[in-house]
Design a protein around this nucleic acid. Structure first.
Length: 800
DNA sequence: GGTTGCTGTCATCTG
DNA sequence: GGCAGATGACAGCAA
């Protein structure tokens, strides 16, 4: 029974995720409303939201369905809400943590992971030997220790190329190979694969025949098929001959197949291509890394085929990082600054940054230069074509923070789980963007724009730093930064810290004036719950409470008087009652939006003050007590000190008059009565204290208003900052495009120009310099660079 | 029993 | 200088 229940629940969740991935929004809230009180209950009661006077409580909001703040169900509710948010977020591709959490939910048995060969290079990198033994013991036995990684990559590439492809023959083959796969698993995999197809991932991405052939490629007597397999695969990813994936070495003329055979042709073709893709994606300063890995193959599991790739790329050695004019640190500061804007609409574009977040591992490689970091990116790229299902396979036990923070974790690049999760992410990208052209996905825009390296060699562009690429590729940099160095927990912590950076020491978790912050962080950043909105919700509770109090007062016959609770009403004065126009229960409420109106004198001033000085609950008790106790004792007991003193001193008028009369009338009143010094002193004290009490209430109200306004101001400023940063990114993007255009035009001009001896001007040595007067000069690049540095020196001298 | 928020009060400052 | 208001600080109370 328990098994059936668990199976049914997991099936529902999986089905929900599938619907979310397809695009069908599943409002699970409606189904859960049976368990959680509906909204109307908040209005009609008897939830705590209606009767609770602690309306400032953060959790006691409409979103909380009126669960009592101390209810044990509250944590359950928040857990459910968190899960629902994650499920909802799946249909708009929130990366990466959300997906990761979802995959963690669907933990499949380890046996499936190993048997289905869908572990990807992550596992292969870590303990490839064992996997190899599992999947292909014969091949592993034939290979030496040095080729172990090859075999693992073969396995990985095989997986990455669509271990879930639904072709019947292949599926049957998979079943043969993966006996541990249940029918449900296969059906799910099939559905996911079809989703990939529907979402635009072409069948060629998976290249089923390749996969089949790759599987066969492990057999030593079928090595000759590798060439065709490689060709098919290359066609599948729409790479053209002569591009970054060119096969022929530009310098040595060696062809890749020859190298591959010399290196051990049992390596999977898909892996080779993936590595080429990887190399094409990180063209800057990676040759040395590749060569380094070649020299020290034990550092990486994919070093066998490295030399060929490193020699193959005629990559722009003319793109030195030293030419990057933009300060990298400044760029990162911008990124970090955008991170501060988590409560803004940055999330609206967060989906678009997924791909970039992948590509943004580039700076890691260029800056750190470690093979480990590079391995991360490489594996991520290798898994770009992994289907969605793969993400649900492994039972990930690694810590998530290190996943998104490879820089913090030096061994991150070598962690298999990390790589696997990256593949999960990338698979989503692939399916969501529907991109069949893997170059468009993998290669950074610079390479995309100048991908035809053989035809148009890339010349130095001062705006082509990798960091800038990462900045310019997508607008949403929040998720970028999240992936680069921040886990979700860290980000939320940062957000929490940023919430209090107004200098007001607002405790968002407890302060009654800033529940929105916590609300925002508790839900998603997409919920643009402003302070006012949250206060409106909060006000709904407050209104109900006070309306009830007002009703009670009316029933009790207490008219006007001293209202100790009117500060609550006054706090509601800045709440928009229009939020409750749709609620008939709220229409009947007469809101007192006046904070400090002159209080009408009561015909029974003492009694009214007495009632007003007590809380509602206290008044209920009082009403009950009045039936049991003599009124005089009750009055004496519940009166304030001043009232008791006034009665004791036999003051002939009410405290209400004493406090609220204007000075002239007050003096006139005093003059009319013959009062002793003690009486006059008491009256003055009562007046002073009454005035001061109202003043204190006004003061507190103003304080709250000030805090709220400051919060709004901070939010507005953050929004403006985010907008400006986005604009800056856009401008930089335009500048980069214009620079590239100018550069290409310059090359075209230079290619047509000839010197006096009829020799062309090599674009690598000469550049066009544009004068302010419209003149164009042909200048050697060395000279141009020197001239470009001179103004900087001058500026520095000026600064000195 | 400790915490938190609200309220009243006092002392002090300012206009 | 007195007065009214503003405000920080403190204590009491209730949840």
């Amino acid at each position: 029974m328990l098994y059936l229940k668990k199976y049914f629940t997991e099936g529902l969740i999986q089905f929900t995720i599938l619907l979310s991935l397809i695009g069908v929004r599943v409002d699970v809230d409606t189904y859960l409303s049976n368990q959680l009180p509906p909204l109307r209950e908040i209005i009609l009661g008897p939830s705590s939201a209606y009767t609770q006077t602690q309306f400032h409580n953060l959790r006691n909001t409409l979103d909380g369905y009126g669960i009592h703040p101390k209810s044990v169900d509250l944590d359950h509710f928040f857990a459910i809400r968190q899960l629902l948010n994650q499920v909802h977020s799946l249909d708009h591709l929130r990366v990466p943590s959300t997906e990761l959490s979802a995959w963690l939910v669907h933990r499949d048995p380890e046996t499936v992971v190993s048997a289905t060969s869908q572990s990807g290079p992550s596992i292969a990198l870590d303990n490839g030997g064992s996997l190899e033994d599992v999947n292909n013991p014969e091949a592993s036995a034939m290979r030496g220790a040095g080729s172990a990684s090859e075999s693992t990559y073969s396995l990985s590439g095989e997986d990455s190329l669509g271990a879930v492809a639904p072709e019947n023959s292949q599926e049957q083959a998979d079943r043969e190979d993966n006996d541990d796969l249940s029918k449900e698993d296969i059906d799910l995999i099939d559905i996911l694969w079809r989703q990939d197809i529907d979402l635009g991932a072409g069948r060629e991405v998976f290249n089923y025949s390749n996969r089949q052939k790759d599987g066969e490629a492990d057999k030593p007597n079928e090595e000759h098929e590798e060439a065709s397999v490689r060709e098919d695969w290359r066609n599948g990813i729409n790479l053209q001959e002569g591009q970054s994936l060119t096969v022929v070495d530009g310098e040595t003329g060696e062809s890749i197949p020859e190298q591959l055979s010399s290196l051990g042709a049992q390596t999977s073709m898909s892996l080779q291509e993936c590595l080429r893709l990887l190399e094409a994606t990180f063209p800057f300063g990676e040759e040395s890394e590749f060569q380094a890995t070649d020299a020290a193959p034990q550092l990486s599991g994919s070093t066998e085929d490295v030399p060929s790739t490193s020699q193959r790329l005629p990559l722009p050695d003319s793109l030195p990082q030293s030419d990057v004019p933009l300060d990298l640190e400044q760029q990162w500061q911008d990124i970090m600054a955008i991170m501060e804007l988590q409560d803004m609409d940055v999330n609206n574009t967060a989906e678009n940054s997924t791909l970039n977040s992948q590509n943004n591992t580039g700076p890691n490689t260029t800056e750190s230069g470690t093979v480990a970091n590079f391995g991360l990116s490489r594996s991520s790229l290798i898994n770009q074509d992994v289907s969605l299902h793969q993400a649900s396979l492994p039972s990930c036990s690694q810590d998530l923070p290190s996943l998104f923070n490879p820089e913090l974790d030096p061994s991150a690049g070598q962690r298999p789980a990390l790589l696997r999760l990256a593949s999960s992410n990338s698979s989503n990208i692939n399916s969501t963007f529907g991109a069949t052209n893997l170059t468009g996905l993998f290669l950074p825009p610079l390479l995309n724009s100048t991908s035809n390296l053989t035809s148009t060699p890339v010349l130095p562009d001062p705006f082509t730093s990798l960091l800038e690429e990462s900045m310019l590729d997508e607008i949403s940099l929040l998720d970028l930064a999240m992936e680069e160095g921040f886990s979700q927990a860290q980000a939320s912590q940062l957000e929490h810290e940023l919430d209090s950076d107004s200098g007001l020491s607002l405790d968002s978790g407890h302060s009654p004036v800033s529940p929105s912050n916590s609300e925002t962080s508790c839900s998603s950043a997409a919920s643009t719950s402003s302070t006012s909105a949250t206060f409106s919700e909060e006000g709904a509770v407050g209104y109900s409470t006070d309306s009830e109090a007002a009703t009670a007062e009316a029933e009790e016959g207490a008219v006007g008087g001293y209202q100790p609770e009117y500060s609550k009403l006054c706090r509601m004065s800045y709440q928009d009652p229009s939020h409750f126009h749709g609620l008939p229960q709220m229409d009947s409420i007469n809101h007192n939006h006046t904070y400090n109106l002159p209080l009408a004198s009561s015909s029974y001033p003492e009694h009214s003050q007495l009632l007003g000085s007590c809380s509602k609950k206290g008044r209920d008790k009082q009403l009950q007590q009045t039936k049991l106790q003599p009124p005089r004792d009750f009055i004496d007991k519940q009166s304030s000190r001043d009232e008791r003193r006034a009665r004791a001193m036999k003051i002939p008028f009410s405290n209400d008059k004493i406090v609220n009369l204007p000075v002239e009338e007050f003096n006139e009143l005093l003059s009319k009565h013959h009062l002793s010094e003690a009486q006059l002193s008491l009256i003055r004290d009562i007046r002073r204290r009454g005035k001061n009490k109202m003043a204190a209430q006004n003061c507190r109200k103003r304080k709250l208003d000030t805090i709220i306004n400051l919060e709004k101001g901070v939010q507005d400023l953050r929004r403006d900052k985010a907008r400006l940063l986005k604009e800056k990114v856009e401008y930089l993007r335009c500048i980069r495009q214009m620079k590239q255009k100018v550069e290409s035009l310059s090359q075209e001009v230079l290619s047509q120009l000839r010197d006096e001896e009829g020799r062309p001007y090599p674009a690598s040595e000469y550049s066009l310099q544009y004068g302010t007067d419209g003149s164009v000069l042909i200048m050697p690049r060395s000279m141009a660079a020197e001239e470009g540095r001179k103004p900087d020196k001058k500026q520095k001298d000026k600064k000195k």
